[in-house]
Design a protein around this nucleic acid. Structure first.
Lengths: 183, 183
DNA sequence: ACCTGAACACCGTTCAAGT
DNA sequence: ACCTGAACACCGTTCAAGT
């Protein structure tokens, strides 16, 4: 729940500049990039970053927002698919790409998914819920093993080793997990 | 290849104290612990740490040494097992525990396995080779899919999300990967 | 209400001086 | 040959002073 308080015009401008800079910095230097660089590139004072984004995680959440929204929609669109397994496959293939352009991001996402209360966890809550619907349908159709939860699947996929250049999981790795999921 | 140069008596004493302290510190604070704490607990100067262990990775390698040796032996012992798949299962179950007592270590191990030249990568080379023998035997027996390499399997297993208390992979997660591996 | 630069704390790394 | 404490650099976080 990103509380959209009303901000003074200059504050809004700063927030936008900070987000643009953060996206750029994380893309270039990875999710572990020094935060310093962000207010520097945004042309604002250090403390302004901390006022708007108290922690690194708050920046991650803001940056991943759009992708998460898209994935929620993609899940909802597939809720009534004729073949639940096929719907699951397609959705996970799209999900696998989340955070791929920021080195180290998907590993952090994986951890956040299994925790509670972090900004990234809160951001992902609707996505978890939407995916869970797809997942249960496939389980009920006896296409997916039932000794594992939907969140676990997301966490495993995001934890897969990433190609250093593309940031994507290796297709064979994903195939192992998906085959292991199928019943 | 840990070059076992001859050290002056006080140097040997310091190295041992540093390793004992590092084990303790990483166990308590995880693999990301501040290095500072190590020379402090070992009762030596800061620079003495850096003389003997130029990077954090050198400490990791030294600390994981014993476990890696054990795993090499375990692999060799199973090379002629009657059932290659069973041998593989048993070995991976043992492997999964490596670094479990140091929070965040197995994720780092996973990355190191796919790189070259890092101290941890060098440490693991013999283990990779020993496991590869087991792995190929299972592939040749058509028990394991052949679109994936043995190192990939190690990297995937070490990348699996870890239980925050035990440091172990969840059994169901491991089961997904192993079932996905089987042909 | 929001901004800023300066100050502070933390920690990795190096170096000059010692034995 | 090896040790040490001091110095330096980097970076996250806070705060007093400004508009």
């Amino acid at each position: 729940m990103t509380s959209t308080r009303v901000l003074r015009a200059d504050a809004t401008r700063n927030v936008n500049a900070l987000l643009a800079a953060a996206t750029e910095v994380f893309r270039e230097l990875g999710a572990d990039a020094p935060l310093d660089e962000i207010p520097r590139r945004a042309g604002v004072g250090r403390a302004t970053l901390y006022r708007h984004f108290p922690t690194r995680e708050h920046l991650y959440a803001a940056i991943l927002q759009a992708q998460v929204n898209t994935l929620v929609e993609a899940a909802v669109a597939r809720e009534d698919a004729a073949d639940p397994w096929e719907a699951l496959l397609q959705w996970i293939s799209a999900y696998e790409e989340i955070g791929a352009e920021y080195r180290g991001m998907s590993a952090r996402l994986s951890s956040a998914l299994l925790e509670d209360g972090s900004p990234v966890a809160e951001l992902c809550a609707p996505m978890k819920a939407a995916f869970d619907v797809l997942f249960r349908r496939a389980q009920e159709a006896a296409q997916v093993r039932d000794d594992i939860s939907s969140v676990d699947v997301l966490a495993i996929v995001s934890a897969l080793p990433r190609d250093l250049n593309t940031g994507r999981a290796r297709p064979a790795h994903l195939a192992v997990v998906l085959d292991g999921l199928r019943q």
